[in-house]
Simulated assay, not measured.
Amino acid sequence: MKIATWNINSVRLREPLALRFLREHAPDVLALQEIKCTNDQFPAKGFAKAGYVHQAVSGQKANHGVAVVSRLPIKDFKIDAFCRESHCRHLRVLFENGLELNDFYVPAGGDIPDPALNPKFDHKLDFLARLEKEFKKRKDGKVAPVVLLGDLNVAPLENDVWSHKQMLRVVSHTPVETKLLAAAYAAYDWADVTRTLVPPDKKIYSWWSYRAADWEASDRGRRLDHIWVSPALRGQIRSQQIVKKMRGWEKCSDHVPVIAEIDFP
């Protein structure tokens, strides 16, 4: 089973890029974040024509929003009241083959890493804390086939950013964020697909700022996009890929897709 996640940063604007990605990489499932449209505005017909007829969408006018398009049948999906601000940031999808997929778009958190001064950062910390509580209360961690993926907006490890020392005071790599994400990771004994196959001493990123004059030359990236699997799937991980070349596509998102292949069912 080939699963991909991508913060598309407007699905209507980048539908042609998404369809090109699907043609070139042919995942069974594509989870999207920051779709920036309401459910009725989602380009469902385009994805269905490409073979992704099974869809789950939680959209929101102008901002946020998550969606899953699939070639595999979806049994059910749930839009959880997960975000305290009532943003559309989470979809729980159950496939007919028994796999559960959780698509998350964690708040970015603004620019000031102080919850007292920055309500957006306070919101982000609250969201990450809720993420831990959600899976800590579940008792099926060792047996349930569950995938958690999306734009988690945290680069947790030293080599998930271009400069650990310089990024410690920058939102997405501050100690309070990485600590909260680590707690959420431990709560369900997740396995990080990328870091299972890519050693922690190797730098690897999935996001490069639009602000860089030459993103590729400077290569000041961050690994903000993740795919985690539950213990039941830990031994089933077969491959991972971060599609860096897509950052160079015309009018691309500042994020690129992350792909995982697992043996399931």
Results as ranks from 00 to 15, higher is better:
L152E: 00
P156E: 07
K179F: 12
K137M: 10
L128H: 07
L152T: 01
A186L: 12
H164N: 14
T178V: 12
L149W: 00
L131V: 14
K142C: 06
K142L: 13
T194M: 12
D189E: 15
T174D: 08
P199T: 01
V170F: 05
P175E: 13
D192I: 02
K179H: 15
G150Y: 00
L168S: 09
T178H: 04
K137V: 11
D160M: 02
E132Y: 05
M167Y: 04
V146D: 00
R195Q: 05
R130E: 03
V176M: 10
D189M: 12
K179E: 15
L197Q: 06
S163C: 12
P199M: 06
V198P: 01
R195L: 08
V198K: 04
S172G: 04
K133T: 11
F127W: 15
K137H: 08
L131N: 09
L197H: 09
Y188M: 08
V176F: 00
A182K: 11
S163G: 10
R130N: 09
K179S: 15
D140P: 04
L148W: 09
F135N: 04
L128W: 10
G141Q: 04
T196P: 00
A184D: 05
A187W: 06
R138D: 11
L131D: 10
L180M: 10
P156M: 06
S163Q: 09
S172Q: 08
L152Y: 00
A191T: 15
K137C: 07
K136Y: 08
S172D: 09
R195P: 02
L148S: 06
V143A: 15
A184E: 06
V176E: 11
A184P: 02
Q166L: 14
K124R: 11
G141T: 00
A186W: 06
V176G: 01
E158L: 07
K137N: 09
H164V: 07
A155H: 02
L148T: 03
K165C: 05
V198M: 04
A183T: 09
P199C: 05
A144K: 13
L148H: 02
H173V: 02
K179W: 09
D126C: 15
V198F: 02
